[in-house]
Structure formats: C-alpha cells, structure tokens
Computed example of a mutant assay.
Amino acid sequence: MMAWPLENSSLTLLGDTTSVQIWYDAGARWLYVRWRGNYREQDAGAGWVLLLRCLRLQPCTKLLNDARDAVEGWAGREQWAGEALFPQLAERGVRSVACVYLEALAARFSLDTTLGSTPKPFVAAFDDLATACAWLQQR
C-alpha cells in the first residue's frame, strides 16, 4: 500500500473497528473508508453503522471507499447493499462515491453486482486508488 493515506497530515481518524477505518481528509474534503480483512456480515454491519455515525460527525458530499485490503466482497448480500445501504449515504448528503476494487475476481463481481443494484448514479468503481482519487476530485 502506498504511503497515502496513513502518512497524510490532513487526515483525522474518525472511527476504527476490526473491519474498517474511517478518516476525514480535510485537504480533499471527503471521507476515506478503508475496509480490511474478512467481510463477515456482523463486521460489515458494525462498519456500516460506524460510517453513518462518522457522516453525522463530519458531513461530506464525497466518499472514497477503499476495499484493497479486504479479503472478500458482500458474500450474497449485494442487492441488499445496493438497494438499502448506498441510498442511506445519499440521504446523508453523499453525492459521489469512488470504490476501489478488491484484488479477488469474485470480490470484483460482488462489487459490480452491488453497484448494479444501487438506484443512485453517484457510485463508480476503479482498479486503483490514484484513479479513484482523480475521479472523486473532479466531482
């Protein structure tokens, strides 16, 4: 993993669980969400609650969702995530989400399926962090 974001002085850690870290990037004015490890339903649920709480503490219109350090995808809950979770972000003011793919092909399919179930057109997926950041900066 590149030095950014952990060595970025404009980052403030807002929340941390076993499966996710959530940072506010004051320079970019977005939330940086870093998923890691296995993506079990209980961990994912706790991470999602934390993300929504962080959005209340630090409202943002942009979110960088980095899944490069995660081991697996939504594991059969893709449609639910797309139809229920992503719209909650929109309700809280998020207008653009850049998602960085996991390495595993099955996990990529999982994210694509989730995004296909998302009724809001504000989510895009990318192969690398730099491209995701560039897209999000232009939004």
Rank of each mutant, 00 (worst) to 15 (best):
E41G: 06
D16L: 12
L64S: 09
G47P: 01
W48R: 13
G82C: 01
W80D: 13
N65H: 13
R56E: 15
Y32M: 11
A46F: 05
D25Y: 10
P87D: 04
G47N: 08
L14S: 04
A90Q: 11
L55I: 05
L57R: 15
W35Y: 09
T17K: 03
E78M: 02
G82T: 03
C99Y: 14
R92L: 12
C54P: 04
G76T: 04
L14G: 04
L55F: 02
L52S: 08
D25P: 10
Q21E: 14
Y101L: 00
E41A: 13
F86K: 00
L51S: 10
T18G: 11
L11I: 08
V94Q: 02
L50V: 01
G37W: 04
L64K: 09
W48D: 11
S96K: 05
A26S: 15
C99K: 13
I22T: 09
R53M: 01
R92G: 05
A67E: 11
D25N: 14
E91R: 12
G37K: 08
N38Y: 15
R36H: 14
D69L: 10
P59L: 02
A75W: 00
C60N: 11
I22N: 05
L11N: 09
A81H: 03
C54L: 01
R34T: 00
P59Q: 03
R68Q: 14
D25I: 04
W48I: 14
Y32V: 14
R92F: 01
A46I: 07
S96M: 02
W23R: 13
D16K: 14
A81F: 08
G82A: 01
A28N: 07
E72H: 08
